[in-house]
Simulated scan of single mutants.
Amino acid sequence: MLRAGARHPDADESPASTSSQEEVPDVQQLYQALNEYLLLEHKFQPRLCLPAESENGEVTTGARDGAAHVLRCLKVWFDLPASVLVHAINLFDRFLTKMKVRPCHVPCITVSCMNIAIDEYAEQTRQTRNVSVEELVSISQSACTAGDVARMSRVIVDKLALAKGCRYVSVLDWARLLWRLVAGAARELGVTPPVCQESELLNLVEIAACDAACANARASELALVLVFHKLEQQLVEWSRDGTGVPEDAYYLYDFAAQLQAHCHMSDASLVATRNRVRLVLSRYEARCAAPHRQRLVWRLSERTLKVLRPTDRLGSLLPTIEEQHFAVDSTPTRNRSGSESSESEDMSDWPRSPVLPVYCDN
C-alpha cells in the first residue's frame, strides 16, 4: 500500500515535517476505515439467483430492475439522498436472497424497503422524518395500504435481522472512501488530483445499483471499478485538452493493483465486474442518447386520481333545461288591471336564491 512514511524519532522538527505529520493521521484514518469496511462487507452482500423469465410464478430480473427504478423515482420525487436509495435497493436484494417472493408482493416489498431506509437514515442523522408512509403508498401506486407497508416492514426487519443502530456500509460509502484514497495517492505522486463532482460519482453508483447485472458484485469491487472508470474519463479529458497526461498519473493503476491485493480481490472476479459495469453504462448511455419520440404520458390510477382531484361525487352531466319557443304573433298577452299586484304573478321561473337587501350610504 502507498502509505506516508513514518517520521524518524531523531529527525528535527521542521515545517515540512510538521505538514507531513499532519497528513499521516488522515491517511491512517482512511486505511482504518478501509479495514472496517472489509470486516462488514459480507454482512450486506446479496446472492440473487433470479430467472430471466418467470416459469413458476417467480420474480424475474426484469421485475427486480423495475422495483429498483420505482425506488429511484421515489428518491427523486421526495428529494432523498442517494444513500437512502442504495440502502433500499440493498434491502430489497437481500430480502429476495433469503425469501421466495411472489410477484404480486413485489410492490409492497419495494415501498417497505424504502420505508425502512428512510427510518434508518432519519435515525442515523438524528433528523425528523419528512416523508410519511401514506405519501410513499400514494406516489408509488403500489395498490397496498399503509398498514400493509408497516406489517411488511416488520417482516423484512425480522428476516434480515436488522439491529437498531447497526452501521450500514454501502457501495456508495466504498466509492467515496476509495476516491479519497486515490486522490491522496495522486498528491503523493505529485500529480494533480483528478476532479470528480460528488453528483457524478453518485450517478454512477445509482446506475450500477439499479441494474440486476451488478447486484451480486462485491461492494468493494464495484466501487473500485466505478472509481477507475471515472479516472479513465479524467485521463481522456486531459488528453483532449492538449495539456497531455502526466506520466506519473499512470502509476495510479499500480495503486489500484495494491488496493485490489489489500481487499483480496481476484483478477477474474474484478475483470468480470468491470465487464458488467461497462455493459450497464453503455446501455444507459445508449438510452440517454436515443431521441425521445414518444410524448410523456401520465397514467394515474382511479384512487390516485380521486386524491388529486376529489370530484367523484360530482355529476359529469347537467340536466337539460327545456325552453318554450313562441312565435312573435302567438306571444301570450299579459292583462294587467289596477287591482292586480306583482305578488299574484307566476314566480315559478324566478331564481330560487334569497333576496339580499342593499344598503346605501345616503
Rank of each mutant, 00 (worst) to 15 (best):
G190P: 02
R218F: 05
S153D: 02
E198C: 05
D211V: 05
G147N: 09
L224F: 05
W174N: 02
P107A: 02
E134W: 07
Y168H: 14
C104T: 14
I207P: 00
D173C: 12
Q127H: 08
L226Q: 01
E120V: 10
E200W: 04
L201A: 10
G165M: 04
A163D: 03
G184Q: 11
V205G: 08
A185Y: 07
V133G: 09
P107D: 07
V171H: 01
L222N: 03
A146H: 00
Q197Y: 03
N130F: 14
V171T: 14
W174I: 03
L235Q: 11
H105V: 13
Q141V: 07
A175Q: 06
V169G: 06
N216P: 03
Q127M: 13
C214A: 07
R176F: 07
Q233F: 05
R151A: 12
C113Q: 08
E134N: 13
V182L: 13
G165Y: 03
V106N: 13
C144L: 03
C144S: 11
C214E: 05
S140C: 04
V106S: 12
V137L: 00
F228G: 08
E123F: 06
A163P: 00
R240V: 11
R126C: 15
L136P: 00
R167T: 14
C104R: 10
S199T: 11
V191K: 07
A150Y: 06
D211F: 04
G242D: 04
C104I: 13
H105T: 13
A122K: 08
A219K: 05
L172P: 00
R187L: 01
L235S: 05
R151M: 09
R180C: 09
A161R: 12
H105R: 15
L204M: 14
A213S: 14
L222H: 00
W179D: 12
A219E: 01
A122G: 09
C108E: 11
D119G: 11
I109T: 08
A186D: 06
V236R: 08
T110Y: 04
A183T: 14
E188Y: 07
S112E: 03
D158Q: 13
I109S: 02
M152P: 06
P103Y: 01
M152D: 05
E221K: 00
A117Q: 02
R129V: 11
D241C: 15
A185E: 14
L202T: 14
A208H: 01
V205K: 07
P194A: 12
C214P: 10
C210H: 00
T125V: 12
E120M: 11
A212F: 04
Q233E: 09
S170Y: 07
E221R: 05
G244S: 08
A175F: 03
A185I: 02
R240W: 06
R218C: 01
R176H: 07
A161K: 09
V131R: 02
R240P: 00
L136C: 04
E188D: 10
V101I: 15
E188P: 00
A146D: 09
E198L: 08
P193G: 02
V137Y: 02
P103H: 04
N203V: 07
V155C: 11
L202C: 08
A150E: 13
V227T: 15
A117E: 03
C144R: 07
N130H: 09
V236Y: 05
A209W: 00
A183W: 09
E198T: 12
R129T: 15
V225T: 08
V149T: 06
A215S: 09
L231N: 01
A208W: 01
S199E: 10
V106L: 14
R167Q: 15
L178Q: 12
W238D: 13
Q234L: 05
A219T: 11
K100Y: 04
